[in-house]
């Protein structure tokens, strides 16, 4: 685990510079969510605009939009693939992302386009930590 104050970045997943994560969980399935830095920046999420199962997603392109306190934040897909499941609990209760953006707070399950999922263009947690530190300095 990498930690910056209250912001934790578990070592068991890969991070996109747009503060989404990908965690392989089995045969051709990857969970996707937002990291604790994004969660802290936005505070309480009021709603999430999500793609539906069956939709294709592309690394770096908009995957979802978080809505909070009158503002919105688009976040990118961490990998190429197809959405196979939406976390309905988080969709109905996005405020629960505050408690746990990593386990119960996964947002989508994606079938990756290729076997090399989650290596290309993504950070391990130690590099993601440096990226978060830079952003915090900027703030």
């Amino acid at each position: 685990v990498s930690r910056i104050g209250p912001i934790v970045l578990p070592a068991d997943r890969y991070y996109h510079p747009g503060h989404t994560w990908a965690k392989p969980v089995g045969a051709g399935e990857v969970l996707v969510g937002l990291d604790a830095f994004a969660r802290r920046i936005v505070g309480d999420v009021r709603a999430i605009d999500l793609p539906s199962p069956g939709e294709r997603v592309e690394q770096g392109r908009r995957l979802w939009t978080l809505r909070f306190d009158g503002r919105a934040l688009d976040q990118p897909a961490p990998l190429d693939g197809e959405v196979i499941e939406v976390n309905e609990e988080i969709l109905r209760h996005p405020e629960r992302l505050r408690e746990d953006p990593y386990e119960r707070g996964w947002i989508l399950k994606v079938r990756p386009r290729d076997e090399q999922c989650c290596v290309a263009n993504l950070f391990a947690s130690d590099l993601a930590k440096k990226w978060v530190e830079l952003a915090i300095q900027d703030l």
Partner: peptide, 25 residues
Amino acid sequence: LMEGIAKYLSEAQWEQFRKRYFPVA
């Protein structure tokens, strides 16, 4: 880092921060 800091930034500050640290193609 302040909880929910985005809402305390000006619109211009937020846009600049968002584009740099939350890049979307």
